Computed example of a mutant assay.
Amino acid sequence: MKHIITALSLLLLLTQGALAQNDSPYKTSLAVDGPIIVAGMGLSYYGLTLMMDKDGLTAEEVNRLSKNDVNGFDRFSAGYHSDNAKKVSDIPFYGSFTLPIAMLLNDNVGSKAGQVLVLYVETMAVTGALFTMTNGNVPRTRPLVYSEEVDISDKTTANARNAFYAGHTAASASAAFFAAKIFHDFNPDSNARPYVWAAAAAVPATVGYLRLKAGKHFLSDNLLGYTLGAAAGILVPQLHKKSNKTNISLVPITAPSYKGALLTYRF
């Protein structure tokens, strides 16, 4: 019953978004956006199962680990661990998801709430699919595993090998930059646009810094997560713009032997 209700709610949201076309900088379509959202959610779920099914390190493998084995760019953070930083990171992380909703308070954005919510769900579905499918197929030991202060039981879990790439950073960047992009496009004459973009950039940067200090991810993991999250937050709305001339499309795809996303450019 829960799945039926969820499907009906998604269908209603897509229908409302498809109808909200007039006076909007975006064009959405039930026939196009529906399958993308469903595929993105499906890939996200599948990728999550891959993440949970990873083989953790054995105690012997943990004891053989050396910070010198970490590449020079990331080595400085090998051994970082902070429960406090992890807890604090949740504040800007969860807060970032409210930013697109807060943008609905703007009259221009709020008048197209259904369409904006469709784009938001699609953005997060694409972000989730890219992250979980990558993380699920690429095991990388977290920096905290190199810390002598962390209990061996925490070092040998599957989660201890989910460093690549930073999902918290990617998700917060996606939500924050999506909010800024939406405000930017709906308010072309607003003097607040530079400040909105600055705030959007600061939120995931804060999340990434705290996740680094917590020993959850290396710097390169955070940089990649930030970049891909921001790209999704900006590109999904951009690809729906009525004035978009880039001929770029990004679509999650699935097949018996392959699951991922297809980026195409038409000349």
Rank of each mutant, 00 (worst) to 15 (best):
S24Y: 09
W197M: 01
T206S: 15
P188T: 09
S174T: 07
A261R: 08
A205Y: 02
N108F: 11
N135T: 12
E60W: 03
A175F: 00
N71F: 11
A202G: 04
I4W: 08
F76S: 11
A158C: 10
G34P: 04
A176C: 05
K87G: 10
I234Y: 11
L65P: 12
A158P: 03
T156K: 02
K54Q: 14
Y80R: 09
K241P: 00
I101R: 01
Q16R: 09
D221L: 06
N106D: 06
A232D: 03
S174G: 15
N22I: 07
P204M: 11
K2I: 10
K242M: 01
D221R: 10
T264M: 13
G225K: 10
I91H: 02
A125H: 02
R193H: 07
Y209T: 14
L14I: 10
F218Q: 08
F73Q: 05
A31C: 00
P35G: 05
S44A: 15
M103N: 07
G225N: 04
M124Y: 03
F183Y: 14
S77F: 12
S44H: 07
Y146V: 12
T98P: 00
G95M: 08
L12V: 15
R75S: 06
V145L: 06
V38L: 15
V70C: 08
L235E: 08
L12F: 13
Y120K: 04
V203S: 05
A180I: 02
S220W: 14
K54F: 05
P25Q: 07
H81F: 14
N159G: 10
A78G: 06
A200V: 05
T58R: 04
S257R: 12
Y80V: 00
A20T: 02
G56D: 01
S249C: 08
P35R: 08
D107W: 15
H240T: 00
W197C: 05
T141V: 15
P256K: 13
T58E: 00
L144V: 02
I101W: 01
T98Y: 08
M52K: 13
K87P: 02
K259T: 05
T28W: 13
I101S: 01
A85H: 06
G128L: 11
N135E: 03
L210Q: 05
T123Y: 00
G208A: 14
F97A: 08
P252G: 03
P139R: 10
A175C: 04
T157Y: 01
G40F: 09
A180L: 08
G34M: 07
P100R: 06
S220L: 06
T141P: 03
V121Y: 06
G56C: 13
K87W: 00
G136S: 10
I36M: 14
L11M: 14
V196I: 10
L13Q: 08
K259C: 07
E60P: 13
G260S: 01
F97N: 06
G95Y: 02
V32Y: 14
A170F: 00
Y209W: 13
L19M: 15
E122D: 07
N106T: 01
A201V: 02
R266H: 13
S257A: 11
L262Y: 15
A102R: 06
T98F: 12
L99R: 02
K112G: 00
L117E: 01
G47L: 09
A231D: 01
